[in-house]
Design a protein around this nucleic acid. Structure first.
Lengths: 164, 164
DNA sequence: CTTATTACTTAGCACTGCTAACGAATTATA
DNA sequence: TATAATTCGTTAGCAGTGCTAAGTAATAAG
């Protein structure tokens, strides 16, 4: 629903690289497609009783190891108060535990529990399956394209986040 | 943060087409990449005083023309009460107006106002520019890949939504 | 030792999703 | 036609997720 605005008419003169018409066109379509893909997956993901932000934070903890709240917030591109609440929720559900840092009493050390790891694997697998079902009409070469695209998106975000 | 779970170990026997290992791999990476791309764009999109759901619904109204609430909810893959509130917000902001259907007094007819159309164009352009900036490190062929991928995602979602 | 900075929490707002329950209008049926 | 079933939208209430502003406690800087 967000993909119908033509961006081909953008002015050509004196624009930063990011505003070249074709780049805008791609950004437009990709933005819309990403929204729809995730919305469609979310729609049938009522099973996980955890919520996307907590699941994502838990993922960082599981694969990145224990870390301080601030670092977790940065990794998730979220402000500290938001992450504070997310971590509180994870703790309340027994999915993560909190210890105080021995070196710096201001910091906390957030760690995924065994239960948290288990839940993450299950919830993640379910979510991935939902996306895979959405992609079930596509064939090999098309999947290749999507895989390349996913890599490009990750790389672009990493770079943009690092630059800022 | 969601892309580190290997799905290569999935069982191969007696699985529906959507669970072929490669498809799961692609779904995994794509899911993660889409989340990160959108999160990164959202991060600097505090300007629009409208919120993503309202903006998206407004987009449907602008490009799809006036329609009933139920149809709008279906288009946005959202339940009726949610859309009811979104439309109420749009009305309160003067971005959409509501009339009663002459044929069926149960229905309402939601229409984007001129102000709504104007705001949509601006907010959308800003959002697209943010994504374009994120993509600023990519070159021609890579953008081609992303455009193809966007088209594939849209097609897959349309098909999956229609099938169900 | 005093001040500034850093890390996290609390409080409060806004937005967005859901289900349950309701009223009103329409359609189907006895 | 009268009654029942269905459909459309709304209201109420819950949960989750984002933010800023303001507060507390600990550390670093002067």
């Amino acid at each position: 629903m967000l993909a119908m605005l033509s961006v081909r008419n953008a002015k050509l003169c004196r624009m930063p690289r990011s505003q070249e018409p074709f780049r805008l066109e791609v950004a437009d379509r990709l933005h819309s497609a990403a929204i729809h893909l995730l919305r469609h997956a979310r729609k049938r993901d009522v099973l996980a009783r955890v919520g996307p932000a907590r699941l994502s934070a838990l993922s960082v903890l599981v694969f990145g190891g224990p870390m301080a709240l601030g670092k977790l917030a940065a990794a998730e591109q979220v402000k500290a108060p938001t992450m504070s609440r997310i971590v509180a929720g994870l703790k309340r559900s027994g999915l993560a535990k909190i210890e105080t840092d021995a070196k710096d009493a201001r910091r906390i050390r957030v760690t995924a529990t065994a239960k948290g790891e288990r839940l993450l694997q299950q919830a993640r697998a379910r979510r991935v399956r939902l996306v895979a079902e959405t992609l079930s009409g596509l064939r090999g070469p098309e999947l290749d394209t999507l895989l390349k695209a996913a890599e490009l998106m990750e790389r672009a975000v990493r770079q943009a986040a690092g630059t800022r």
